[in-house]
Write a protein that binds this DNA or RNA. Structure first.
Lengths: 113, 113
DNA sequence: TCAGATACATAATATTCTTATGTATATTTG
DNA sequence: CAAATATACATAAGAATATTATGTATCTGA
């Protein structure tokens, strides 16, 4: 089951920044594959969503980039900037808090996983 | 702290439908006030977001409406349709599942609340 | 009386997604 | 070895849905 896209809206930047926090340096395609794998195929980030998001994060100064060539193919690596490192902590706190509020609002009981 | 609007995107219909499940019959303004109260002022639904959403839910057949006059002032009550009752269960399941995936992706530890 | 709350609605604008398209290289498989 | 698939970037048109602003009107409390 793939999550409906509305759900992912609003969390995409957080997901991307978190991957960069975990892995130091990643390129776009790698992020989509990693998230697909970690989410057991349930979060599929399309290219049309990913690249504008990465460009936006760069414009906000939250990530920095380095372009490399692997053979003849270009690859653009992204890393968290110092501001990005601060931001990801804030975003995760806010999301965690929001999820607790949603659980309460929607009567979702904690699961024993 | 008010949640950033991006977070609420994608969950607004679920929040509204859940309130209607809990309270059988509510009008728009009442929903905004109830959600504001239950969320401890952290989820503020604006009118520009609420009314188009309610109209959309009606167009989808998930809610039915009755208009009443309280004195001279009109009030439009919303109730879940049978399809809406089914839908809210599905939406909450999906959201609960999504939140578990997000916790895992973002290394959010369960809180002892 | 008059400010603020109640109660609906819509329009212009912004954001951000989906879907489609474009370009190109690398790898796997029949 | 040819063709399909995967890798890898990017942008544009269109859709969905939010913000912000505006409009109308009634009710209530200080």
């Amino acid at each position: 089951m793939i999550y409906s896209s509305e759900l992912i809206k609003g969390t995409l930047k957080t997901i991307v920044l978190k991957q960069l926090e975990n892995n130091k340096r990643m390129y776009g395609y790698e992020i989509t594959q990693r998230v697909k794998e970690l989410s057991l195929e349930r979060i599929l980030i399309t290219e049309g969503a990913l690249y504008p998001t990465l460009h936006s994060l760069e414009a906000e100064g939250l990530v920095t980039t380095e372009t490399e060539y692997i053979g003849k193919r270009v690859r653009k690596y992204y890393s968290l900037s110092p501001e990005g490192k601060t931001k990801i902590g804030e975003k995760i706190s806010e999301l965690a808090d929001f999820m607790n509020t949603m659980k309460f609002l929607l009567d979702i009981n904690p699961q024993t996983v």
